[in-house]
Amino acid sequence: MSLLSVENLKVAYGGIQALKGISLEVAPGELVALIGSNGAGKTTALKALAGLLHPAAGKVSYAGKSLHNIPAHQRVRDGLALVPEGRGVFARLSVEENLQMGAYTRNDAAQIGSDLERMYALFPRLAERRAQLAGTLSGGEQQMVAMARALMSRPKLLMLDEPSMGLAPMMVEKIFATIREISTQGVSILLVEQNARLALEAAQRGYVLESGLIALSGVSGELLGSDAVQRAYLGGGREPAGSFSLKTRD
């Protein structure tokens, strides 16, 4: 049985349909990638699943229960955690305080303490900086804080929105290595990524979102090999508009 199952999810916003009915599944322990161009609705999908947006239609069930009318904070309590795009760390709190905020829904102090140590083991970089204000960290370190914070809620399903955005190549490698490690620890992951190759290489299965609809889905290897994905997301030529000279002065 799947951990998360989405059926015909529609989200409208300001009169525009951002999601026109998508269906997807995530099995326990699975790492699933959701790729697509900017504006295709990937972030909208994650926000709707996290309870930050209200869907116009569709059925979402998680761990066998419907998520209909379940507020965002309750979803976190139930083990559904989102790491938002742009990280959203609490800039004026220290690294450690950020992580403790992630455990806000829990009240098992002893366990929280040991989970903190687990996070520092997973992200040694954060252990060195536990007292530093999160806002003064580099982009990659902030991404680590955001992920560790989400993990502190002991999620069953971790949703990651663009974890590689704005990161140096080496940092991207590190983050993705950590994502794989989290996955092997048994946490299900729904990964939204602009870098389609990276995402599909890490994931077992993938969905391709185009203008609010699932255009393609399948096992990662097949998607990586497919012509359509190659052309649309892994780089093909397109001539730019524009033919006049910038030199003209008024």
């Binding site: 300001g14 972030t43 909208t44 795009e85």
Partner: peptide, 21 residues
């Protein structure tokens, strides 16, 4: 104008970017 349609599909995609900045 923010509320009129035709202003673009991807409102929500932007929001988080702005929040971050």
């Amino acid at each position: 104008r923010e509320l009129t349609p035709g202003a673009g599909v991807a409102h929500q995609e932007q929001e988080s970017v702005y929040d971050a900045s």
